[in-house]
Simulated assay, not measured.
Amino acid sequence: MRRVLPSLASAGIVGLGVFWWVTAPDRLPDDAVAGLSADVAHGEQVFWASGCSSCHAAPDATGDEKLLLAGGQKFPSDFGTFIAPNISPDPENGIGGWSTLDLANAMTRGVSPEGAHYYPAFPYTSYANADLQDIVDLKAFLDTLPAVPTPSQAHEVGFPFNIRRSLGGWKFLFADKGWVITDGLTPETERGRYLVEALGHCGECHTPRNGLGGMERAAWLSGAPNPDGKGTIPNITPGELDWSAADIAYYFETGFTPDFDSVGGHMASVVDNLSKLSAEDRAAIAAYLKIVPAVK
């Protein structure tokens, strides 16, 4: 026993060291956004393409209310209920005190300015593919919005999921930066891929997940159970969605389906965002969805 205990202690120390290394927050280089000039007008397009207001504004917000990013919406899941934070320019309760690099680290690395891991309810696994210029422009636009002094609420997450450091292990397993669709792309479908896979983070809802919450990318966009337990999120691959590209683009613009129905539920907010993009971007998204591998 006297010979075994030191070996066990050494193994434990090595294991702890490996865990600490694997789970350490991974930040961008300090000069990652140096030299990039902001374009506020383009930042507004990035804002709508990224769906920021769909989570961070009030659930029933319309018009200018969608620009009041006080947070507070609740998102239930198998791991607890996540509550969207205040991302308005308020310096105390929002992100008014953040630098552009802080926002880039949050969006592409899932790391807070204090160095803590964010929960992947914040879709940084998709935003990881966002162009840093777009994030620079987005930050400039966010800074023009009204500051809202509402404090962010704490997530309703219990043990062991409330151990933030362990999220580094989740990222190690599932934060797989890289494109899902890599072959047969045209300039239009490449733009559509960027809008769907990165900014629009469509896969975060429309792709099934494994038991630990990682996206099953082999079943990309093939639908998933609704995290709140009510119904399912539809399959939007050509294996189920048989609309033409023109029909899809028209739906994104107006909310009307080819069957003379109209958009509802959470998708209504998404369509409202997409309606503010250019016709070319909506067509690019539709073209991309038509080349995604069909899943029945």
Rank of each mutant, 00 (worst) to 15 (best):
L5I: 15
L5E: 05
P6V: 04
A9L: 15
A11E: 04
G15R: 03
L16D: 01
G17Y: 00
V18E: 01
W21C: 10
V22S: 01
L28M: 04
P29Y: 02
D30E: 13
D31N: 13
G35C: 07
G35L: 05
L36A: 04
A38L: 05
D39H: 10
A41D: 14
A41L: 06
A41W: 00
H42Q: 12
G43T: 09
G43N: 02
V46A: 04
D64S: 15
K66V: 11
L68S: 07
L69V: 13
A70I: 02
A70R: 06
G71A: 08
Q73C: 12
T81M: 08
I83P: 03
A84L: 09
I87Y: 03
S88Q: 06
S88V: 07
G94R: 03
S99Y: 00
D102G: 05
N105G: 09
A106E: 03
G110L: 06
G110R: 00
A116L: 12
Y118F: 15
Y119R: 03
Y124K: 10
S126C: 12
A128Q: 12
N129M: 14
D131A: 06
L132V: 13
Q133C: 07
K139T: 08
L142D: 07
D143E: 11
T144I: 12
V148C: 08
A154I: 13
E156M: 10
V157E: 02
V157C: 09
F159P: 09
F161I: 03
N162K: 08
N162C: 03
I163P: 00
R164G: 15
R165D: 13
L167F: 05
G168Y: 00
G169E: 04
K171P: 00
K171I: 01
L173M: 14
D176K: 15
W179D: 15
I181D: 02
I181Q: 09
G184M: 08
P187S: 11
P187L: 12
E188N: 04
G192E: 07
R193W: 03
E197M: 05
A198H: 04
E204W: 01
E204S: 09
C205L: 10
G213E: 05
E216Y: 00
E216R: 07
A218S: 12
A219E: 13
W220K: 00
S222Y: 06
S222Q: 02
P225D: 14
D228H: 04
K230N: 15
T232V: 11
P234H: 06
L241V: 09
S244W: 11
A249Y: 01
F252W: 10
F252K: 00
T254E: 12
G255T: 11
F256K: 14
D259H: 02
F260M: 11
F260K: 13
D261E: 15
G265N: 13
H266T: 11
S269N: 14
S269R: 14
V270T: 14
V270Y: 12
N273M: 05
L274M: 14
L274W: 13
L277N: 03
S278R: 02
A279H: 07
R282A: 08
R282S: 11
